[in-house]
Structure formats: C-alpha cells, structure tokens
Amino acid sequence: MYRRTLLAATLAAPALAQSPWPNRPVRMVIPFAPGGGTDIGGRILCQRLAEIWGQPVVVENRGGAGGMIGTRAVGAAAPDGYTLLFNGTLSILRDGFDPRSVTDHVVRATITHNIVVVNEHVPVRSLPEFITYLKANPGRVNHGTSGPLASQHLAAVMFDLLAGTRMENIHYRGTGPSVAGILGNEVQVMFGSMSAVLPLIEAGRLRALATASGRRSAMLPNLPTVGEVVPGYAAELTYSFSTPSGVAEPIKRRLEQSVRQVLDNEVIVGELRTRGFEPDYDTNPGLARYIEEDVQRWADVARRANLNLNEG
C-alpha cells in the first residue's frame, strides 16, 4: 500500500508542476494612486484578463516616487508570474536605478495622450495664448503632476525647455490627486492623461488646449498637438504589462496572447477609447527598442533641465 501511494504521488508531481498559468489569483501592482490614468486603464484590462484566465486579478495600488515604489515591489517579488506590473513606460533612470534591471516589459497594451488642460482661472483659449500668458507670468502658474519625474512632470519640463516658459511644478501621489488639485485651483494647468481629464473636458470643467503626443487623438481630432505650435515637441505615454525578471518564457507568451485577446474584442476596445485609451499592441523586440529610445530621449531632457534624478 505504501509503495502504491508513493508511486501515485511521484506520477502526480510533474502534472502539478506543469499546471497551466495562472491557476490561482494574480496580483497586479499599479504604481500610482487610484483614480488616475494608469489605474483606470489597468482596471479595465485586468477585469478582462480575469475573465480570460478564470482567476481573480487583484489590483494593488502602490503609489509614490513617480511609480518607482510599486516597480521596486514587483521587482522584489517571486518570479512565478503571480505578481505583475501595469504601468506607463518608466523612462527616467532615477538614483542610478534602471527598472529594467529587476522587471521585464512583456507586452504593450495601449497608449494615451497627455492633454494640456487649464482651469477657469487661466484666461486663455489656445496654446499660443497660453504660451504668451506663461511668458508674461513666469513661475506664477502652477502645474500639477502625478509625482516627481512621472510622465506629466517630464512633459511639462520639455514644454518649458522648448517653448521658453517657466511653470511651477507641484507634485502629487498620482494623477487622481493632481486632478483634485486643478479643480480646487491649487494648480492651474496639467499635462493630464486623457483617461483622467477627458470626462472633465466634456463636462466643461477643464479647457483642453493641445495634446502632448506626436499625433492627434481620435477622441479629440480637432485638438492640435503641442508640436504644431512648438516644433520638435512630442511626449506620448504608453502602457505595458511587466513581470519580475526571471519569469518563465511560457508565462510571458501566455500574457502576450491574453492581452492580444483582450484587444481583439471590439466591445473592450470601445470601452478603452471612451476612457481616452487607444489600443497599441506590441511585444519584444520592438517594445524593448521603443523603451530604449524613450529612456534616451528623457535622459536628454533631464540633462538639459538639470533635473534632480534622486527626487521623490
């Protein structure tokens, strides 16, 4: 009896080891506070991934340090595929730390446009008028960011460099709190992710001046790009899923296939677009090349603006 039991356990072990991933809940870290663009897009996608996998996807918001706190937490997690990261591209190598040293970008899902928006206290209706206003009031207009060296902060820094203006950056722990800041007039302008500010634009609570991306948005086709007024300007935000370094390749391929399946569903694509996201699927090696170019572009901005890369 003992030998038969031992044999059965031995034969079962490989089958258990090779159980398809995921066979238990997956933790998805979003490294910003609830209510911002990363959180909104991540939750839409995670809900659909949970349906595909037949397993809960538990979203955990770990904001702070422009996304670095959550990223470091994922990098320190076991490389078993059960802790993942959903984030915009982390383009600044802060304090000598390269997120790519502890995490692997696996698949890009969407892009979103950072939209230059102002509240009712800024008496302008176009980007040229806004530039004129900023030059007449250097340092007197507050810009809200989702954290030091996050995408909104960098987009505004690049704008100041190329437009010859000077805004005062006020840092929050995520896009959601910065939106509350502009509505309460703690700040007067944001380079906010479209997913976070589009409902407020449509409600007339914020005024859109331009999109910071290098292309116009399908959601706001009449809105000019910053680059149409400020030559050479483009700051596009992409969102991808990452794993801790060392996760098995079959798990990464399954994640890629699952995201592709999500984006092949027109109902889900429509839901994403109404929240300001545009599907933009990509995997490696193309994704790795894009991220490297992004890192180099923002390193140049940081150097020219003399940014403190230990900030936050």
Rank of each mutant, 00 (worst) to 15 (best):
H153P: 05
I170D: 09
M190T: 03
V197A: 05
R215K: 15
V187W: 00
A150W: 03
S151V: 09
N222Y: 12
G144F: 08
L183A: 10
I131C: 08
A218Y: 11
R207Q: 13
H153W: 02
R216N: 12
L161G: 09
P199M: 05
L198M: 11
A208N: 10
S146L: 08
P221T: 07
M167F: 07
R215Y: 14
L200K: 07
M194G: 13
R215C: 12
A155V: 10
R207C: 09
L223V: 05
A196H: 01
L162C: 05
L220P: 01
G181H: 06
N185E: 02
M190F: 02
H143C: 05
R173T: 13
H153M: 00
A163P: 02
T145Y: 04
H171L: 10
R125S: 14
E168F: 12
G139K: 04
R205W: 12
G204L: 06
L200C: 09
R166D: 08
E202S: 12
A163H: 01
Y133H: 09
R205Y: 11
G176W: 00
I170E: 12
P148F: 11
G164H: 04
I170C: 13
E186P: 00
V157F: 08
G139T: 03
R173A: 15
P128N: 11
L154M: 15
I131N: 08
P199E: 07
G144W: 04
L209A: 13
E186V: 14
S213H: 12
V141S: 03
G204S: 01
R140Q: 14
G139H: 00
V189G: 02
L209K: 10
V187S: 06
V197Y: 00
P128H: 02
I170S: 12
Y133I: 01
L198A: 14
L154Y: 01
L183C: 08
A150H: 06
A180E: 15
H171W: 09
S195T: 08
Q152L: 00
I131R: 05
G164T: 08
V187F: 01
Y172P: 07
A156Y: 03
H171S: 15
S213L: 05
Q152A: 14
R207K: 15
R140A: 12
T145L: 00
D160P: 03
Q152P: 01
